[in-house]
Structures are given as C-alpha cells and as structure tokens.
C-alpha cells in the first residue's frame, strides 16, 4: 500500500485545494491520519473510494471525538526596550526577557473515519475532519453518499456529539430518545441529578451525592 505521504500527494493531485494535512500518530501503532478540510471532503472521499490503486471501498469505523477549549502556556522570549539607570545616566536598553504567554486554543469536534479496501485487502487509511468550534459551527459534510456504512454511525455521532452532517439523508437521534436535548459524549456533559441513593460513593459520584443531599436539605428547610 502507498505511504501516507504518497496518499496525500495523490489526493492533492486529484482534488486541487483539498487541504489535506498529515496528522502523525506517535504511538507504536503508527496509524497516521489525514486531516481533510470540510470544504472538499466529499470529493476527497470519492477519490479515495474510486481510485484504482487505493480502492478504499469499505468505511469500517466512524467516530466522534471531542476536544475541549484549552489554554496553552508557552514560554516566549520577548525583546523589550527598558529605561534603566546605568552609571547615573538614564538610558534606553534593549533586553530579552522570557515571558509566559497564555494562548487560548479553541476546542473542536472531530470526526474520524477508518477506511479499508476489500478489493485490495489493505488498510487502514484514517481520515479526520474538524469543526470550527464546539458551539455554533458544528457542521461537517456527510460521507454517507460515498459509503453507505457511515449512515448509522454518523447518526450516532450526531446524537452523542452534536456534529451536524450536512447532506445526511436521515439525520435523527439514534440511541437516545427524540426529546433528549443534550449530547452526552461531550466532555463537558453533566449527568442528570439522580444521585439519591449511592451506597458506595467515591470521587465524582461522592461529590454529586453530597450536592444532592445538600439540595434536598435546603428544599426541606424552605418548606
């Protein structure tokens, strides 16, 4: 099978402006992946499926991943002009100081596809797409028209992560009931308050059980 760099080059030749970048995987598994821009993702997927050499006709696994907003603390060397008194005379001196700069990295939702080839019996080729943020711009193109096997899995990702797949033929909740409002697999999802009876609580459960008991006591006092 082609290496990940060759696949990237092949995609870029076939789909100009495909915005394909390689995401390295440092673990011993070494399953590197291709980050595909949402704009041309359907065309890229179609190329991967129909290309005679790659022939990735089997979309095995579709997954959502939630990456939270985070802050990166970086040490940056900054050159500043400082006024200093040297030998009794005020002078403008250039000085290099190391400062810690906090940079907010916006979170995003990610959708990962594991592709195999039944015809050529090779794989996996991993492609991933990222949304712009986690709140209002969570749309990604659906790849169900290319691989029918993604139909239910994309619905599941929509249900549990809230990624909206544009062009999906039947995008409804699949595992939770229709009236449900949350996306429970997101990292900031809070469990509903049913911690009335926890005989052996620990860690998070202990905190929630105590909070529940405090709530009940407060309500009792109010009445």
């Amino acid at each position: 099978m082609k290496t990940i760099e060759e696949i990237q080059a092949a995609i870029e030749a076939a789909v100009p402006g495909g915005e394909v970048t390689i995401v390295m995987n440092p673990s011993p598994a070494a399953q590197h992946s291709l980050l595909v821009g949402a704009g041309k993702a359907v065309a890229v997927a179609k190329f991967l499926r129909d290309d005679a050499e790659l022939a990735l006709d089997f979309c095995s696994n579709v997954t959502g991943v939630d990456w939270l907003d985070r802050e990166i603390a970086e040490k940056v060397k900054v050159t500043k002009t400082v006024t200093k008194t040297v030998d009794g005379v005020e002078q403008q001196v250039e000085e290099t100081v190391e400062e810690t700069v906090k940079r907010a990295v916006p979170g995003y939702l990610e959708c990962v596809y594991h592709l195999y080839s039944v015809a050529k019996k090779h794989g996996p080729v991993v492609i991933r797409m990222r949304t712009a943020n986690r709140s209002d711009m969570v749309e990604l193109p659906s790849l169900t028209p290319i691989w029918r096997g993604a139909e239910f899995q994309e619905r599941e990702v929509f249900d549990l992560y809230g990624i909206v797949f544009t062009g999906h033929p039947d995008l409804r909740r699949i595992l939770m009931w229709d009236e449900f409002k949350d996306h429970p697999m997101r990292k900031d999802y809070v469990l509903p308050d049913d911690f009335e009876y926890e005989p052996t609580p620990h860690d998070d459960v202990l905190k929630r059980a105590e909070a529940h008991r405090a709530d009940v006591a407060q309500e009792g006092a109010a009445q």
């Binding site: 009931w177 009236e179 449900f180 409002k181 949350d182 509903p192 308050d193 049913d194 009335e196 009876y197 005989p199």
Partner: peptide, 21 residues
C-alpha cells in the same frame, strides 16, 4: 415520561423511598 435531560419523575415515591444507608 422521557424528558429533555432525564426521566420525569426519576422515581415513583409510592413504590420506592430512598433507603437509609
């Protein structure tokens, strides 16, 4: 009833009361 976040109510008080640990 299946509500927006959880079942409503979360238990039937006529059948189940919170056991004392």
């Amino acid at each position: 009833v299946q509500g927006e976040h959880d079942l409503e109510p979360t238990s039937n008080p006529g059948v189940w009361t919170v056991p004392v640990v």
